[in-house]
Simulated scan of single mutants.
Amino acid sequence: MTLPPLDSQQWNGAIRAFGWGLRATSATILSMVLFVTFIGIGALAHDTHFSMLWAILSTVLVWAGPAQIILVTTLGSGQTIVQSAIAVTMSAIRLFPMVVAVMPLLRTPATKRRQLVLVAHFTAVTLWVECYRFLPHVPRERRIAFVHGLGTGLITIGLVATIIGYLLAANLSQTFGAAVLLLTPLAFLFSTARNSRELADVLALALGLVFYPVAALLNSGVDILVSGVAAGTIAFGVHKWRQRT
């Protein structure tokens, strides 16, 4: 999908910007990946004997595939609500840097904090990746409305897929369920690679892929965190060094 030029009259009004954000969900392959992924999450909720209403609310309120899987599996295995909440919170911490990265793309001197609450909730890996692709083509004063539309479209796709997965759970094999959940990290990996234009971005991604097998040998349980922090720190250092030279 091609967005209107920045100075186009089609950006006049927040409702129009919201509509463009809503339409943008049909222009990304990640929407399809999201749909298939949440079919798997809906099926998992069914197989763990949660109600459809519970599955729908988990999609709306948690809005993060890995965190939902943790929530379903921990509660389904007999863990307490407090233990499950701690596990989900630890998983959600990974989204904090994404929120921090997206906010400067949206803020204007007149932006109030309450206008960013819904954006912060919508910000998961899918929206984070797509913001870097779409927002440079959106007037800054319309970006919050655009992201509201984009987030609403994505979460609607997730809701529909959750319901379909829940209803079809009896006909889905465990192999299919595992396969659709694997699509998400693969899609995000390729999307991040596509959006990496600066040397620091490419270096961070490449080093992360190299460091992860080494970090996995530590059996620490935080392999991704260790490899990500190490790769990101080195890439940031190289970026700063190039700025000074």
Rank of each mutant, 00 (worst) to 15 (best):
I81E: 13
E141A: 12
D223M: 09
R143C: 05
V36D: 02
V125P: 09
A120D: 01
L44M: 14
W54V: 11
W241E: 04
G208T: 11
V226P: 08
P104R: 01
A178V: 12
D47G: 15
G40D: 10
T156K: 00
S8G: 03
V202P: 03
V125E: 14
L218I: 09
H49D: 15
I144Y: 02
D201A: 09
M90H: 05
A200I: 03
G19E: 02
A45R: 05
L199V: 06
A101Q: 05
Q174R: 13
L116Q: 04
A120V: 02
D47W: 08
R94Q: 11
L57Y: 11
P104Y: 02
I155Q: 13
T156N: 03
I29C: 04
L106Y: 04
T192K: 03
T37R: 04
A14Y: 07
P139I: 04
L44F: 10
P109I: 04
I56D: 09
L44T: 15
F190K: 00
S191C: 08
T37P: 07
V202I: 11
L150S: 06
V138L: 06
R142M: 08
R143Q: 08
D7V: 05
G228N: 10
A67L: 07
A120I: 00
A24N: 02
L205K: 03
P97Y: 07
V238L: 06
N171E: 15
V129E: 04
G19K: 00
K112L: 07
A235V: 10
G228H: 09
Y166M: 10
S31Y: 04
T111C: 07
L30P: 06
Q243L: 11
I155M: 15
T126W: 03
V229Y: 13
L127C: 07
A43I: 12
L209V: 13
A43C: 11
V222D: 07
V214R: 00
L218S: 13
V99F: 01
A216Y: 10
